[in-house]
Amino acid sequence: MSTSFHLRSLGLALVLAGAAGCSSPKTAIYEHENFDDSGTFSRDYPVSDVAACEAARRALLSQGYIITSSDPKLVAGNKSFQQTGETHLQISFNVVCAADGKGSNHSTMFANALQDRYALKKVNNSASLGVGVLGSVSMPIGSTDDSMVKVASETVSAPKFYERYFALVDVFLPQEVKQAEHIPEKPKADLGMPEPKAAPAAEKVEAPQDTPQPAAAQPLAPPPEAAPIAPTPEPNPEPAPAPTPVTEPAPAPTNPSLPAPTEAIPPLPAPAQ
C-alpha cells in the first residue's frame, strides 16, 4: 500500500513539474537587441555620400552581385548560391549612404545583408472525376509539381563578413582621397580579386658566336676625274674651184649677106683670190 502511494506521489510531482515548465514564459528573441553602436554595419568615409555609394556599388559588382537600384545614395543587390540540388541560398545586400554633418566630403555608409534559404518542395495534384449518380469523386491520379519555397530568412550579423566588404570598398575610393587620408593599399588577392597579369617581357635573342658578323660598310671611293678632252681641229676649207670661162656664142647675123665676124669675145677675168 505504501509503495503504491509513493509511486502515485512521484507521478504527480513529475506532472506538476512538466506543467510548470510549459507555463514558464520564454525569452523573446528581441530581448537580445541592445542597440549598441558596435560599428558592425556602418563605416565612415572621407568622401561625399554619392561617391561612397558609387564605391559600394563597384565593390558589389566586382563580386558578382546583381544591382537592382538606381538611386545614387542607395545600393541594392543580390547574389544566388546553389548549395545542393534541393537547397538554394540568396543574399540580398543593401547599402545606404548619408552625410554625417562633418562637411560635404564626409559620409557614413550603412550596410546589411539578408540571407534567404529556399528548399525544393513537391506537391501532388489529384484529379477529380465527376460521376452523374455518385457526384464528384477524387481519383489518386495526377501530377507532381516541384517548386522552390522559402524556408528561412536571417540577417547576416557576422562582423568579419562586413569587415571584408568595407575593406573592399576602400579599394574603389578615388586615388587622390586615399593618398590624402593615408589609406593603405591592400593586395587585391587578399580581397578575392584577381591581380592583373603583366605582359611577358620579350626575350633578347643573342647571335651565335660562330656566326660571322657582317663587315662595316666601307665608304665608296670618289670616281676618277675625267681627263680633259682636246678640242678637235677644224678642217681647213678647201679653195673653191675657179669658174670655167663660158664662151658666149656669137649672135647669129641678122643680114645673111654680111660675113660672120672672125674674132672671138675675150673671156671674163677670173675673180681675185
Rank of each mutant, 00 (worst) to 15 (best):
V151K: 14
M109V: 15
S104W: 14
F81Q: 02
N105A: 11
G77H: 05
A99W: 12
A119Y: 14
Q83M: 09
N105R: 09
V151D: 03
K150Q: 11
I141F: 14
K102G: 10
V149A: 08
A111G: 11
M139C: 09
Y165L: 06
D100P: 06
S92Y: 09
M139K: 10
E154N: 13
T144P: 04
G142F: 04
M139H: 12
V156W: 00
E163R: 10
F93N: 00
I66P: 00
R117W: 06
N112W: 09
K79R: 05
D100C: 12
F81E: 01
A76N: 07
V95K: 04
S138K: 15
K122H: 05
K160Q: 14
V131H: 11
R117I: 00
A119L: 07
N125G: 06
I141H: 04
F110L: 13
K122F: 01
D145C: 12
I141Y: 08
R117S: 10
S138P: 13
Y65V: 02
Y65N: 01
A113D: 02
T68R: 00
F93H: 00
Y65L: 05
N125C: 04
K102S: 08
F161M: 07
L114Q: 07
K79V: 06
V137S: 09
A113W: 06
V95A: 08
H88Y: 10
L114F: 11
T108N: 15
P140Y: 14
V75T: 04
T87P: 01
V137Y: 12
A113P: 00
T84A: 10
Y118G: 10
G103F: 05
G77K: 02
V123K: 01
L89I: 03
S107W: 04
S147D: 11
H106D: 05
S92C: 02
I91N: 04
Y65R: 00
I141V: 09
D116F: 10
A98Q: 13
G101I: 10
E163N: 12
G130V: 14
V123I: 01
L134P: 02
K121Y: 01
V156Y: 01
L89V: 00
Y165G: 01
S128I: 03
T87S: 10
A98L: 11
K150E: 03
S92N: 05
Q115H: 06
I91Y: 01
M148W: 14
L120H: 08
L89C: 02
P159V: 13
K121E: 09
I66R: 00
A111F: 07
E154T: 13
G77Q: 09
E86S: 07
H106P: 02
G103Q: 02
V151R: 15
Y162M: 14
L134W: 08
I66Y: 01
N124L: 03
